[in-house]
Design a protein around this nucleic acid. Sequence first.
DNA 1: CCTTGACCTTCCAGTTACTGGAAAGCTTAA
DNA 2: TTAAGCTTTCCAGTAACTGGAAGGTCAAGG
Lengths: 127, 127
Amino acid sequence: MKISEAAAVCGLPVKTVRYYADIGLVAAPARGTSGYRHYDQAAIRKLIFVRRARAFGFSIDDCRELLSLYEDRHRSSADVRHIALRRLRDIEQKQKELQSLHDDLAHLVDACRGDSRPNCPIIDYLS
Amino acid sequence: MKISEAAAVCGLPVKTVRYYADIGLVAAPARGTSGYRHYDQAAIRKLIFVRRARAFGFSIDDCRELLSLYEDRHRSSADVRHIALRRLRDIEQKQKELQSLHDDLAHLVDACRGDSRPNCPIIDYLS
DNA sequence: CCTTGACCTTCCAGTTACTGGAAAGCTTAA
DNA sequence: TTAAGCTTTCCAGTAACTGGAAGGTCAAGG
């Protein structure tokens, strides 16, 4: 499979697939005489795996670790769980931050008349 | 006030204050013969304003608009409110995304035994 | 056989909002 | 005077791509 077909099958942009090859995340297994990258089923599976992991917000480095665990028949599920739990804590942290931002900002937006006059609690708060 | 004092007063890193000057967000009002930047009270107030706006997650470009509204005695509060509402919608969007990420990931982490065996619902989900 | 268009390659630059660090100039206290 | 501690500019790096240019490859149609 050439890169555009592989990308289409995996649901990733071609540029991204090439980028993943460049950084050694998911290498193309072979190159023909043309110099074109060729992707086999194993590479396709890895690309899909990475797409799903990225959708959870795992970093590229996390994806590297997850991929190597994915490939490792003797992995401990504890290692996988550890990475996932770390990401979960990150998400929860961000949720808390967003929640207070949201509440504060919503309060200000609510208090602002939003008319043609200059008086504005939002500006007041930031001043 | 030289830059390090201004930065300390505003609660910003020196590097950031210099960066804001470079990109024309908050310019230093004057330079002495030494070439040092000097900050007056108006500049200090702008820096603090920007710090607070950034804490709400407003982009640098948003900060530019907010600053110019802050400076404009003839502003309409509607313009301020519009920018804030846009940011609020962004926050809400992100909250929704994080919520579903959280739920899905929490479910998987919960289902994973986290022991020394390779069996792992997290890996299964990503495969 | 030639050309055309679609594909592929590499490489460079830009994105966001800083941050770190090097090399050199200024200031001030001892 | 000299050394510490400020300041300056400039360059590079961060995360994870994305856009675009210049040029090589391939398959089909005339």
